[in-house]
Computed example of a mutant assay.
Amino acid sequence: MHILIVHVHPEPQSFNAALTHTAVHTLEALGHTVEVSDLYALGFNPVAGRNDVTQAADPAFLHLQREQKAAFERGTTAPDIVAEQRKLTRAELVIFQFPVWWRSAPALLKGWFDRVLTVGYAYGAGRVYATGGLSGRRALLSVTFGSPTSPEEAREVLHQMQDGVLAFVGFEVLPPFVVGGPRSLTVEERQAELERYRDTLAHLALGAPLERSLALS
């Protein structure tokens, strides 16, 4: 299995980075291939607009979805977007690793959704949910909250992203992996959370259900 990790955190020594390193080592040890798209390290531009295409279909008025569709059909999508789309196309499982900020994803990830999940490539007329452009792939949100959280709160916060974005473009969305308040945890508790993630990924890689994905902190 080939896995893409979309990593979104500005600090290389963060707990999110530790979770990404854990995922890479765990999955590679199980014989899978892993690719990491570190959006901060890449300097990925999250702002959708004219620069998303190399040749405008309508130079007089920007209708982003029409431009995306035309660019997909003509092969004029911006190179940085195409690079991310190719990573998605290669992947059988996509893990989104990020901290929850203001009960949502960081702006960089939201911008990645805006620019990469384009009309034509990821969805279109009659191509949503089960028939979306990324059908046949699975998606996992691996996230941290700034403080301890309940499974109910995590589901409420993540629902729109899981259903309104990922499921909409065809992903089979797995239960999220959630760690609440990693900064307040002891070293031993953080190690226990990393071990829980290893166990979750091992079960996932073997095709077993993700029964331990939500921390009850």
Score class of each variant (00 low, 15 high):
Leu158Glu: 05
Glu189Gly: 08
Pro106Trp: 00
Arg183Met: 01
Val173Leu: 10
Leu117Pro: 06
Val173Ser: 10
Ala130Gln: 15
Glu152Lys: 15
Glu152Ile: 10
Glu172Thr: 13
Ala107Trp: 07
Val169Glu: 04
Leu174Asp: 04
Ser135Asp: 12
Gly75Cys: 10
Leu194Thr: 02
Arg103Thr: 14
Phe98Gly: 08
His159Trp: 15
Gln191Leu: 13
Arg155His: 14
Val179Met: 02
Val116Cys: 03
Leu194Met: 05
Val82Asp: 03
Lys87Ala: 15
Gly133Arg: 11
Ser184Leu: 13
Glu188Pro: 01
Val116Tyr: 01
Gln162Tyr: 06
Arg103Pro: 00
Val82Tyr: 00
Val165Tyr: 03
Ala91Ile: 06
Glu172Val: 08
Pro99Ala: 08
Ala192Asn: 03
Ser142Asn: 08
Tyr129Pro: 09
Val116Ile: 07
Ser150Thr: 14
Pro99Asp: 11
Arg74Leu: 10
Ala71Leu: 05
Phe96Trp: 09
Pro182Thr: 00
Gly181Tyr: 05
Glu193Lys: 02
Glu172Gln: 13
Ser135Cys: 13
Ala83His: 14
Thr76Met: 07
Ser147Trp: 14
Ala167Lys: 15
Thr118Val: 12
Ala130His: 15
Thr131Met: 01
Glu172Lys: 09
Leu194Pro: 01
Arg138Ile: 13
Val179Lys: 03
Phe171Leu: 09
Val100Thr: 14
Leu174Gly: 01
Ala154Gln: 13
Val82Phe: 00
Pro176Ala: 02
